[in-house]
Design a binder for these strands. Structure first.
Length: 527
DNA sequence: TCTGGGGTCCTAGGACCC
DNA sequence: TCTGGGGTCCTAGGACCC
């Protein structure tokens, strides 16, 4: 247990919604809801103004619209959020080399890995971080400081919005005791209900119950962890690099799929999308997973482990095809998903090269009688009919992939996205209807702007990349570290802050993928 | 009111091997 | 011939997190 509050947890406030408000001056101070706009969409983030109407994350969008009919409804723009997130993470890395991102808007920092630090200087570091984040991005973040991850996170939660809470080591149990069990990480709706039925609603009651009782109630690992947390003990280290364990993609359909052939083609597309992501991440994997959510929301998975790792779209497609055959889809399919786990960072060629080398070695050792190697080739199924035999032969170009879709005009201007008009300059799509696009002309630094409507095929109007939330000139004026006060750590470079404006090319593809789950882009934003 | 998408970790049973 | 235990891998499902 640390004796100084050297674990920092940063949590950006209503991140997606706040980024949109920063990008769109007319939305500042107004309720903003970011999420899927389709009939089955849910809320990703609600601005604090929208939360006052009762809107919150994970709520069905239809419900949000009833609660806050006048809010602006926007689909997520991950290109923008990633760019801002990268700026923030860079600030964190200046505090310490040990930064553990949890998501785009959240991270732990181990300040002890920077320099020895006492309570007062930890607080100063946290406050300065919050100022720097605001100066660099225009957004607010909340900071928790404590002697462990769990308490740092509880601290940032209590600090929200736009605050800092430092939990003095030694005061943990006193602080935790009266809190609800749901405060503890790992206690969700199910465990919370389970504990409640056993008569435990506060953290103090968990501590009283004792480890044996908790293990009996919720299982070995969970019970033991719960007991330690209840006592305020949490020794989990801040881990900078965590390797990916699986890659998956899934789609919920606006209406249930009944046609078996359609189900099959959707599974094929998902397999290709999944493999594309797998390859982009430089991975291959052994276990292929098919996920099916039926009309009644019952969800099942089927998996198949291959003899060796693959990143071959044909192999993955054939595997999920086999898996699909074992699933009853009568009644309708709501969601389909394809995933690959058991990741290796070597690819199939490496494996083939390795297999070939082993074969050569074996032949030499055996006196060169040219015997065959045992077992199926990598990528071939361990069980089931390993039909096809095309394993590993397709390298370039994902077969059958992106089929040209006749894009309707509305598709070109998704609500909320940035555009540029030859005459009127920068703006964003406020709504798009039949062959028309409504644009509000404003940008991060400007005053709230005016709305104009164009034909969707107006050549003067084009989509553009997100603009930086804070004009680059403001970055130059941003305070630097290393000047005075604490920790002039040698080696921590104070030199160049790369002008981090949103990157253009690279991210646009993943953004498309992120927004593709049936969002037609026809949702209207109404400031 | 009708429930997204991307992950992680744990449990439990059966197969298989020693 | 019968019985047993432990370890590892695979599969399926569930809880949880952001």
């Amino acid at each position: 247990m640390r004796t100084a509050p050297t674990v920092l947890h940063l949590d950006m406030d209503a991140f997606f919604a706040a980024a949109e408000q920063a990008a769109k001056p007319s939305l500042r101070g107004k309720p903003v809801v970011v999420g899927g706009l389709g009939p089955r969409g849910v809320v990703s983030t609600a601005s604090y103004e929208a939360r006052r109407f009762g809107v919150h994350s994970a709520m069905p969008m239809a419900q949000a619209r009833r609660l806050a009919p006048n809010a602006a409804y926007l689909i997520p723009r991950f290109t923008l959020y990633r760019a801002v997130s990268e700026q923030v993470m860079e600030l964190l890395r200046r505090l310490s080399p040990l930064v553990e991102p949890l998501s785009l808007d959240e991270a732990f920092v181990d300040l002890e890995a920077g320099a020895a630090i006492d309570t007062a200087s930890a607080r100063a570091v946290g406050e300065r971080l919050r100022r720097d984040i605001r100066a660099l991005t225009g957004l607010s973040g909340s900071v928790g400081l404590a002697g462990s991850k769990m308490l740092a996170k509880i601290g940032s939660e209590r600090a929200k919005p736009d605050g800092l809470v430092l939990i003095e080591p030694g005061t943990e149990r006193e602080l935790l005791g009266p809190l609800t069990v749901r405060t503890l990480p790992g206690v969700g709706p199910a465990t919370g209900e389970h504990l409640r039925r056993a008569g435990m609603t506060t953290v103090a009651e968990l501590a009283e119950a004792g480890e044996d009782e908790l293990v009996r109630l919720v299982g070995k690992a969970h019970g033991a962890a719960l007991y330690r947390m209840a006592l305020g003990h949490d020794e989990r280290p801040v881990v900078a690099e965590r390797e990916t364990k699986s890659v998956s993609v899934e789609d919920t359909f606006d209406t249930d799929l009944h046609d078996r052939v359609r189900v099959r083609t959707e599974v094929d597309r998902l397999a290709e999308r999944c493999v594309r992501r797998l390859r982009e991440a430089g991975h291959s994997g052994r276990t292929v997973v098919l996920k099916v959510r039926r009309y009644d929301f019952s969800t099942l998975t089927r998996s198949e482990t291959l003899r060796g790792p693959t990143d071959d779209p044909v192999v993955v497609r054939e595997a999920v095809g086999r898996l699909l055959e074992s699933v009853d889809t009568t009644g309708g399919v709501r969601l389909l998903g394809v995933g690959v786990s058991g990741l290796a960072d070597y690819t199939q060629e490496d494996l083939f090269a390795q297999a070939a080398a082993e074969e050569r070695a074996a032949r030499e050792a055996a006196g060169g009688d040219g015997g065959r190697t045992d077992g199926p080739a990598p990528g071939e199924a361990v069980r089931g009919a390993a039909d096809g035999g095309a394993a590993g032969t397709v390298r370039d170009g994902l077969p059958g992939s992106p089929e040209p879709v006749a894009a309707p005009a509305e598709r070109r201007f998704p609500a909320g996205h940035d555009v540029r008009h030859a005459e009127f300059g920068a703006g964003w799509v406020q709504g798009s209807g039949v062959r028309r696009v409504t644009v509000r002309f404003e940008e991060p630094g400007s005053a709230p702007g005016r709305v104009r409507t164009f034909w969707a095929d107006d050549p003067a109007l084009e989509l553009s990349e997100p603009l930086p939330l804070v004009p680059p000139v403001a970055e130059a004026a941003m305070p630097r570290h290393g000047d005075g006060e604490h920790q002039g750590r040698p080696g921590a470079d104070q030199s160049s802050c790369p002008a981090s404006r949103p990157k253009s090319r690279s991210a646009s593809r993943s953004e498309k993928a992120a927004g593709s789950s049936g969002d037609s882009g026809s949702g209207r934003a109404r400031p």
